[in-house]
Simulated assay, not measured.
Amino acid sequence: MQLIRMFSVLFLAIGGLACGQPLVHDEHEVVVRDSVKLKIAPGPSDPQIQFAPLPSAVDSVAIDPTLGYFVGNLGGGVYWVTDGSYNNMFMVSTHGVIVVDAPPTIGHKLLYAIGNTTRLPVTHLVYSHLHADHIGGASLFNASHPTIIAHAETRNRLATLSPLDPLRPLPNVTFEGDYTVSVGNQTLELSYHGPNHTPGNLFMYAPAQRVAVLVDVIFPGWAPFTELGVADFVPGLIAAHDVLLTFDFDVFVAGHVAQLGTKHDVLQQKKYIEDLRDSCASALNGDMTDAIGPTVAANPGNVWATPKALFRVAAQICADNTTSRWLGVLGAVDVFAFENAYRMVNSLLIEYDVPGPFSVA
């Protein structure tokens, strides 16, 4: 629980970027900057870390400090809740409430948000995926005995925990492909399109309200959190952008950052991650002999020293090049630039088969 609180604090403290105003665009045009001078953020040993200022693309809602949370009405009985770092959604029907996720950082505030909106009980709880930072507050709904719904892979992974986590009760309804939650006059469509952030991570869509939900993949207005949102399978993460764009939505609810998104945000992040991928592939295929030479020479016989140096140099080159083009377009591009590039470098090596210096001799 302490780790979750630290994670939330870290998320709230993310710095960001901006060099002037973002360029003008329409919904289907994605633009990046290509001439911003970048200085990678200092390391953890520095006494003070100063990141670039946030651009106007970061438009977080104001959180009432007394309440500690914000509830937004998306229309048609759909609401989203945020504590400034974590988000979730609930739907009020004529017969009960459907809740999507229960982040422990929001915790009991989620009960207040729902209770101040309706007197109807929570009858259904949907797990977006297995991670505790998004469903670790699920046990708060035990009193109403909701039907808990998740992808089969989510249940399988939760069931491997020993002992079972009482804060994340096992779902009692699972599915493999698609599943429709129907309660009273509300409908929420769940679908699975393969692993991305995690195996079992769901696409969720409220067709009547044209609201889409996908957790830990898209970060509206912001660059992705560290290691591409701690992505389990980067090719699936990248493909998820195109899958999400097939849904006919006006509003997008993300798992993090205190702002809603649109299709433009999905297109913008897709462009950023593709740029990151291409930049890291270029770095891997470049000549890094001189850059890693001193590390190799200083560690004779240490078989881990060479790949460590190579991964670090390739990631830094990729981070520098990509961030210089996106500083001022997405929030906090400089904060996790290296970590995101490092994850992409490793994905290219083992998931995409871009072997670089590890090619067949």
Rank of each mutant, 00 (worst) to 15 (best):
L23K: 13
L23V: 11
V24E: 13
V24A: 13
V24G: 01
D26V: 06
H28T: 15
E29H: 13
V30P: 01
V31M: 11
R33P: 00
D34N: 15
S35R: 14
S35V: 01
S35Q: 14
L38H: 06
K39N: 09
A41L: 15
A41Y: 04
A41V: 15
A41T: 15
P42D: 08
P42A: 12
G43R: 09
P44D: 09
P44V: 11
S45D: 14
S45P: 00
S45T: 13
S45E: 13
P47E: 10
Q48T: 14
I49H: 07
Q50R: 13
Q50M: 09
F51C: 13
A52E: 12
A52I: 03
A52H: 10
A52T: 07
A52L: 14
L54C: 07
S56E: 13
S56V: 12
V58G: 00
V58F: 05
D59R: 15
D59T: 08
S60L: 09
A62R: 13
I63W: 04
I63H: 02
P65C: 05
P65Y: 05
T66G: 12
L67C: 00
G68E: 03
G68Q: 03
Y69M: 04
V71D: 00
V71H: 02
N73Q: 02
L74S: 06
L74H: 07
G75W: 06
G77F: 02
G77N: 05
V78I: 14
Y79G: 00
Y79D: 00
Y79A: 01
W80A: 06
V81R: 00
V81C: 01
V81I: 09
D83P: 02
D83H: 02
G84H: 02
G84C: 04
N87Q: 12
N87Y: 05
N87C: 12
N87F: 03
N88H: 12
